[in-house]
Amino acid sequence: MTDPVLDVKGLKTYFFTDDGQVPAVDGIDFHVKEGEILGIVGESGCGKSVTSLSVMGLLPSPPGKVVDGKILYNGEDITYASESRMRQIRGNDIAMIFQEPMTSLNPVFTIGSQLIEAIRIHRKCSKKQARARAIDLLKLVGLPRADELVDEFPHQLSGGMRQRVMIAMAMACDPKVLIADEPTTALDVTIQAQILDLMLKLNRETKTAIIIITHDLGVVAQMCQRLVVMYAGKVVEEGTVKDIYNNPKHPYTKGLIQSVPDMREKKQRLYSIKGSVPKPGSIKKGCQFAPRCEYVMTDCLEQEPQLTGNEHLVRCLLYRE
């Protein structure tokens, strides 16, 4: 077993607002090894993006703050690393792709200058060398006429092309970990498949560990080896994709999988989990999912479940020993 490149232990990220503190991420653990693809799934507002921003040290602060836990990169604790150390890590060791390709590129600089910048922040090389590398990167992510594209501006590109540029930029310095926060949500289905294929290809070729944050179980099934299911700032289930798909344990995971439409069945209505994600911190005791759970017991409202199991972990009182 190799050591994980990125290991997050008991991470708690709270937001301190005028209405009091909001536990957006409330003690989550996950890790990812070299060459591995990990999926993090959950509904909107369950703390997926806050987790990734915490790892990158990009939380809007104030009001956001990591209050507890550890983020280990190659064994180094970077939870409270200095801004200058984080700058060395960002882009170079841990890179990130964002959800909105339309707005994630700076509209007033050319594609080339933004790629060259990403390269030259971490690599000592001439502008000419960086430009050549930028063109190579654009070719790597499958963009046509790369040598013209470097001199074009983001508004001249489609959403899918821009997301490819974002991936090229993230891969510029061969990062060890790539965090992709909903990389395909804003794209249409055919482009989604292309982008996912591209990420798979890069993962195989460069051994970059990838963390895909998504609410799309289809994406997870296609890409990931392991899966972390988040609910209201906590991990509720963790295991291999195979185990979780074949044998989902947590009622929330079951609900998520059931709500994926199946082409072979002709249902009139899709399954949906009743209710919506509670406001973080609004449920003071018991299981966070209890109010929406089909299997709710009296204990669930009183006792907070712990994550149990060996390879396939679940946070639910149904599985207590």
Binding site: M86, N92, N106, I121
Partner: peptide, 8 residues
């Protein structure tokens, strides 16, 4: 945010 994620 992208520029910060690059390490700029």
């Amino acid at each position: 945010r992208t520029a910060r994620a690059k390490g700029q």
